[in-house]
Amino acid sequence: MTEQKIIPSEVKVVRLEEEILAANDVVAAENRELLRQKSVYTINLISSPGSGKTTLLVETLKALRGKLRCAVIEGDQQTSNDADRIAQTGVPVVQINTIGNCHLDAPLVQKALAQLPLDEIDLLFIENVGNLVCPAGYDLGEQEKVVVMSVTEGEDKPIKYPLAFHLATVMVLTKVDLLPYLKFDKDLCIEMAHRIHPGLPVIETSSYTKEGLADWVDWLLKKCA
């Protein structure tokens, strides 16, 4: 008979070098492979709440109509308000409510991908939860991270949240039609972004006046070409 005896003084130390996000990264790699096989170009949109991400997306989807077949995964803690706005444009959309979580992760995106007609999609936008911190740390399987920032925010956002700006391949500056009414120093903002990410392309847009939208749409069309 074996008798189990607990000797709390016996201490075991297990040495590991285990990546905390390894489980996420495995699923992200699966997502990336699936999207590659289906030829879906995927963009992870990261920004603060209120940057005008959803409005930019609605205008972008309208501009891409007839040019690319788009779809959207919407991440929000609560509500399907954003997904409803996207659905009005007629593109397929899946809402993910993260409830307590401040970011999307690869397993959540994997579930959403299963609900989309991937064979009929050229370009997929993943609108992350409005937050510049955690979304930067989680790979979802996307090709590009795009950071969206509005001119109604502090111009020092790039140096306050450097990881998001460092990992992004383009920065979309929104609401530029408001510049005449603000003290926002656009050149300083771009200079700060370049301290974190030298050469980061910046596209200035206004979803209201449509200024700069064509540049952003061209950037997307080139990526999907």
Binding site: T2, E3, I7, E10, V11, K12, V13, V14, L16
Partner: peptide, 13 residues
């Protein structure tokens, strides 16, 4: 972002 080691009390038989 790594877990380098985990220490604990072991159950012994």
């Amino acid at each position: 972002m790594l877990v380098r080691s985990i220490s604990g009390d072991k159950k012994t038989e």
